[in-house]
Simulated assay, not measured.
Amino acid sequence: MSTRNGIILALLALCSCAPQPYKATNKVYRQQAKSLARGLQDQPIGLPVDSVQPTAWWAGTVNFNLRKPNFVIIHHTAQNSCEQTLKTFTMTRTQVSAHYVICRDGVVHHMLNDYLRAWHGGAAKWGNVTDINSTSIGIELDNNGTEPFAPMQVRSLLVLLDTLKHRYNIPAANFIGHGDIAPRRKVDPSVYFPWQQLAEKGFGLWFDTSAVSLPANFDTKMALRIVGYNVQDSTGAVEAFRRKFNPADSTKGAAMSEGEQKILYSLMKQSQ
């Protein structure tokens, strides 16, 4: 036997003996995916309206494909290990999930097909989109919210974001955080998250105030709305904005400094 063949056989043996800690829940995943697939194959049923009966035959269009995600929502897990998060997302009672989980060491777990709807956004709004889960991919970073993000983790995130951006043609402005879409209710990813580093690679917006001159009577609430924030709770929107774009300022409340208004104006111009 050649050395190469021996190595291959050894690897196969190793794989066959490797523990499969999520064998049971992976089986449930396959069952649910098959159930959804069967539903997609079902012929639509005609809809009778008053005395008008549907036709006795069906005309199925030949022009269709799968819906694709248009947003990426970034979270931190607020838990203490990747394994803890994997378990959380494989228990039905938690009713929470994400498409991807990225561990501190950079390992990426792809937990759900991108075309399927994960339960990660909850009650949220961004611009006119009120059902975030139906149009987004959720990415969870293993981080408890009180510590910087590991370099290898950020590296893996950047590679994943580049893949998703090109695969689904996601606009740069549509890479946002959970705290953006759910002000007050959520703060992730935390103030430690490197948004500027992501924006420099084309994932999310960042500001340049070097040539900004604020217009008279600049309306911060309207500007926040144009960027995408839900301003029904304007104070919460400002705090979410500040946490992302001016994390060094821990000021609470809706009053923005002139510097923050310039940041907001720069972002608003990019969003129009």
Rank of each mutant, 00 (worst) to 15 (best):
M1C: 11
S2P: 11
R4E: 05
G6P: 12
I7K: 15
I8Y: 09
L11H: 04
L12R: 15
L12D: 08
L14D: 06
P21I: 00
V28I: 11
Y29A: 04
Q32F: 10
A33G: 12
A33M: 14
D50C: 13
S51R: 15
Q53A: 06
W58E: 10
W58T: 07
A59Y: 14
G60A: 03
F64K: 09
L66G: 08
R67E: 15
K68G: 03
N70A: 11
I73L: 07
N80A: 02
C82N: 12
E83P: 00
K87R: 06
T88L: 12
T88P: 08
T90K: 06
T90D: 12
Y100Q: 02
V101A: 03
I102Y: 00
R104H: 07
H109P: 02
N113T: 06
Y115N: 08
L116D: 13
G121Q: 09
G122L: 00
G127M: 11
D131R: 11
S134P: 09
I137V: 14
I137N: 09
I137S: 04
I139H: 03
D142A: 10
N143Y: 08
N144Y: 09
G145L: 10
E147F: 09
E147T: 11
A150P: 06
P151C: 09
P151H: 02
M152K: 10
Q153N: 03
V154K: 10
L160M: 12
D162Y: 13
A172I: 06
A172H: 07
A173E: 10
H178C: 07
H178Y: 05
D180K: 02
I181M: 00
I181R: 00
R185L: 14
V187S: 14
D188K: 06
V191Y: 13
F193W: 04
P194H: 01
P194F: 10
Q196F: 03
Q196N: 05
E200Q: 15
K201W: 13
F203T: 00
G204M: 00
V212D: 12
S213A: 12
S213I: 14
P215C: 08
N217K: 04
N217P: 00
N217E: 02
V231E: 14
D233M: 04
F241C: 05
R243N: 07
F245Y: 15
P247I: 09
D249M: 11
D249K: 13
G253P: 01
A254S: 11
S257Y: 11
S257M: 04
S257F: 10
E258R: 06
I263T: 08
Y265H: 10
S266H: 07
M268I: 13
S271R: 01
Q272P: 04
Q272F: 12
